Amino acid sequence: MASALLNRAGFINVFIYFIILAEPYMLLAAMVMAPLTGKNLERFRRWILIFAISNVGLAFIQWIFIPVGLYPKPDGGTVQDNIAGVFGGGGGSAGNYISCTVTIYVGLYVLNYYKQKPLWIRSSLLIAGILQTQISDSKQVFLALMGGGVLLVLTKVQYFRKLVIYAMVMAVLIGVFYWAVVNLDYAFLAPYRNWILRDGLYGPDGEATLTKTAAFRIIPTYYTSLLNWFFGLGPGHSVSRLGGWILRDYASLLAPLGSTTHPASEAVFNVVTSGWIARQSTVYFPLFTWSGIWGDLGFLGLFSYLYLAYVAWRWFCVDDAGKFFLLSTVVFGFILTQMEEPGQVVTIAILLGLQWHEAREARQARFSLAQHRLRQQVTNSLETLDS
């Protein structure tokens, strides 16, 4: 609200942006208030699995039937763009990225939770998610997951054994991937080879570097006072999902409600349309979540959001799987605006809430067992004294 008042942003901007950023935290708070135990918890878990299987199943149906015309294809976008499972939308949307990510996240949850099941069963959903990522050409998902794994390794500094194990696993995976890209001539590796080994993209003056960091150079040129550094340009006035996409795509709906835009958004978007690299890969888009939060709300808004993320990390990431979900989403925030997609962050909130309930139920079970053992010991002691 302070940012909106300072920059004369519309109230509808405030409302939508608040919902985009706060929705997963609100859902997580609601979940921990609900009495999910026993059969209710098992039923909730089962519905999550049904949803995930439906998502990946529909994605494979789209992969097979869209090219032959037996599945309706929305206008725009490639066939790969529309392999989006239950998140299918207009052509060129981020549905394919979200669908793959959700499948992999739930697959990791299944692999981590159902440890009594055979490995081939509990890993099948994860393998399906990896294949779905490949057939939908969602390369940035692998990049974010790898980045999340590296960040997870860095959190294990205090636990030397875990640090070594995780670091070795990540080093092997990265090493094998790089070797394959350099030495193997498979078609599915060609896109990675094109971006990793191409000269002139990286470095201080590289095309990729200049395009990706364009928002940080452009946004401050629109500051009118020192307060902009603390409160930004206003909700939806820079390169967040609201300013970069929603206000543009739904202008006919939101403009009558008093939505406001800002020339900074258009200036950064012009970098995309005037160059070639961002149109070739969304990895190099200058519009992404972390720059958007900073541009819209300033450093105070950015620190406020980071504090909410810390609360989620502190209280709801009960194991390494939950931490990986959160950290890989952080990496997604550096690529595009997938961190502001409800399908992404709501899934994370649900999985974190589910794991929180499972951990609480496990603690209660251990406590009940300890009480039973204590009562048994007291009873045995009394019987011994009586005898």
Rank of each mutant, 00 (worst) to 15 (best):
V150T: 12
I83R: 10
P72K: 08
Y114F: 12
T155R: 09
I135F: 09
Q80D: 13
S93F: 01
N82L: 08
S93H: 04
K139F: 03
G77M: 06
V102M: 04
I53H: 01
L152G: 08
D75E: 14
N82R: 09
A59N: 11
Q132H: 15
F65C: 09
L70I: 03
V164M: 07
V106I: 15
S138I: 06
S99P: 01
R122A: 00
L70S: 04
A167K: 06
L58N: 08
F60N: 09
N112S: 12
L143N: 05
P67V: 15
A84N: 02
K162L: 09
S54K: 02
N112W: 05
V164S: 07
L119M: 14
L145Y: 03
S124F: 00
L154K: 05
W120Y: 11
D137F: 08
K139Y: 06
G77A: 11
K117M: 10
I50R: 12
G77K: 11
M146K: 13
S138H: 00
A171F: 11
T101G: 11
R45A: 14
V157Q: 12
I104S: 04
M146F: 15
F51T: 09
Q62P: 09
N82Q: 14
I64R: 11
G85Y: 06
K156V: 04
V141P: 01
S123E: 02
Q134A: 10
T101Y: 13
I121G: 00
I61E: 01
M170G: 01
S93M: 04
P118M: 13
S138W: 01
G107F: 04
A144T: 08
V56F: 01
G88P: 03
V68W: 12
I104V: 14
D81P: 02
V106K: 05
V56E: 03
N96G: 09
L119Q: 13
G76Q: 12
G89K: 01
G85P: 10
G69R: 10
P67Q: 14
I53W: 02
G129N: 07
V153M: 03
L58E: 04
K117R: 10
P67D: 14
S99A: 13
V172W: 07
L173Q: 07
Y114I: 10
